[in-house]
Computed example of a mutant assay.
Amino acid sequence: MKDLEEILAIAREIGWGAADILRSYYDGTAKDPDLEIQYKQNEPVTVADVAVSQYILQRLQATLGNEDFAYISEETYQSSSSGRKASAPWVWIIDPLDGTRDFIEKTGDYAVHIALVKETRPVLAVVAVPEAQKLYYATKGGGTFVETRDGSVPLQVSSGKRIEDLTLVVSRSHRNQRLDYLLQNLPCQNQKSVGSVGCKIATIVEQQADIYISLSGKSAPKDWDIAAPELILTEAGGKFTHFDGTPLRYNTGDINQWGGLLASNGEYHEVLCKKAEGVLAQFDHS
């Protein structure tokens, strides 16, 4: 198997290629720019999602083969796990277009997620944000970098703020009463609205925000929403855990990330997790 640095170089190149394809659909310059939006479990899917999924899978498989790796992509995943080895030790977890609603509504907040997971934890991640012309990448123990067409620089999360001064990055669309109640009762009340988990985590590693909270309702975020952004955040010095402090696990056979998840710059992480659990207990008993 190639070493991680070689694999990262391949993943970065594929990330840029995927970003270019998405931009061509986004700005209408694709050969056939009609997005043909369909809905799958209430979530929109466009031809751009499918085209980019095919591109990423074909490129990865052509370069790395099927021997050492399994592949899970949002657009090709079947919950019946159609012959997929849930226990393959090395798995690529891919979201070809995170933030499809934002893509359709032209907010610019959409991203490509590519993560390599070993056993149940990410060891390599690429998050491309096409409209910002930026690509974030990280390897386990190797730090987080942002790459533009001019080169790449290391990134570090914010530090030294008071808890009241932290900024929460929140969704435009996925909201419910329980989450709203939680957000209203946290010690920090500054909020910034951004679509796509990849774009949200990008705002934290760029020091424009400090916290992101995911709370599953009827549905939950999936492995491909979280795996790549998690490593981008933690390698920049942040934390991303369940409210009870346990680490996130991927490639477990259940692709849902149920419960409450908190991503932060790492300062006050445990305090905020405990506070969130307390607030939700109040809400659930009221």
Rank of each mutant, 00 (worst) to 15 (best):
N185P: 02
V170D: 03
V170K: 08
K222I: 00
Q191P: 07
P229T: 00
R178W: 05
S219H: 14
E230L: 11
A227C: 04
Y212K: 09
Y212D: 05
I232T: 01
V205T: 05
Q207G: 01
G198W: 13
R172K: 15
K192Q: 09
S193F: 14
K161D: 03
I213R: 12
T203L: 04
L186Y: 08
V197Y: 13
Q189P: 02
R162F: 13
R178Q: 09
L182C: 07
K218E: 10
Q177A: 14
A227I: 04
S214P: 05
K161Y: 01
W224H: 01
D223N: 00
Q207N: 00
Q189A: 07
C199E: 12
V194R: 04
N185K: 10
I211L: 14
S214W: 13
L233W: 07
L231E: 02
A236I: 07
L231I: 01
S171M: 13
K161G: 00
A236T: 07
I201P: 01
E235D: 09
D180A: 11
K218W: 11
S171G: 15
L168E: 07
K200D: 14
S193C: 12
K200W: 15
S193G: 09
V205M: 08
I213P: 06
D180T: 05
S193V: 15
D223S: 02
P221C: 05
E206P: 03
L166R: 05
D180E: 12
N190K: 12
V197D: 03
L215F: 04
S196H: 15
E235G: 08
L215D: 00
P221Q: 06
I226Q: 01
Q189L: 11
I211P: 06
L166A: 01
N190A: 10
C199S: 12
A220R: 03
K218G: 13
Q208M: 13
K161I: 05
P229F: 06
Q177I: 12
T203Y: 10
V169R: 11
V170F: 06
D210K: 10
Q177R: 14
D210N: 06
S173N: 15
S216L: 12
W224M: 02
R178G: 01
S196V: 14
D223F: 04
N176F: 14
S193D: 10
R175D: 03
P221E: 00
W224C: 03
L215C: 00
T167E: 00
T167A: 03
I226E: 00
R178P: 01
S193Q: 14
S219C: 11
D165C: 07
K192R: 11
S171Y: 15
D165G: 07
L231P: 02
T234K: 02
V169S: 07
L183H: 08
E235I: 11
S216Q: 11
I213T: 13
L183C: 09
D223L: 02
G195F: 12
I211D: 05
K200G: 15
S219A: 10
A209C: 07
Q189N: 09
N176P: 07
S214V: 15
